[in-house]
């Protein structure tokens, strides 16, 4: 993988400067049923095509942004800085749980 992503603050950079945090999902606004919760937490559309994703410029400005990427070609069609949306909360994917003892 070597495609470029355009960070809204820093401009185009090698994908390895970023952390990928999965598809943009939607956090329920109200208390969800177990099924809705499971859907939100576990299910991803995993499309072959254009999808909305979360990216974090880990080695650069440490800013979260959204990207529209074609999963078939890795073409990044657009990027946009994250902005607050208190109601329809777009939620991040599960954070990685450390696999080494964390003392």
């Amino acid at each position: 993988m070597s495609f470029l992503l355009s960070c809204p603050n820093c401009g185009p950079r090698d994908v390895n400067e970023f952390a990928y945090a999965g598809e943009v999902t939607s956090r329920p606004a109200e208390r969800p049923s177990v099924r809705e919760l499971a859907t939100y937490v576990h299910f991803r559309r995993n499309v072959a095509g254009v999808q909305q994703e979360w990216w974090f410029h880990r080695f650069g400005c440490e800013t979260w942004f959204r990207a529209e990427r074609d999963t078939r070609t890795n073409a990044v069609l657009a990027t946009e800085a994250a902005h607050a949306e208190p109601d329809g909360q777009a939620a991040p994917a599960e954070a990685a749980v450390p696999d080494v003892p964390a003392v």
């Binding site: 820093c10 401009g11 950079r13 390895n16 400067e17 410029h57 880990r58 080695f59 650069g60 400005c61 440490e62």
Partner: peptide
């Protein structure tokens, strides 16, 4: 891009 400094980015694989 050394023509577009200052900037934040990876140097020697660290931020």
């Amino acid at each position: 891009d050394l023509d577009a400094l200052p900037a934040a980015g990876a140097v020697a694989h660290v931020p």
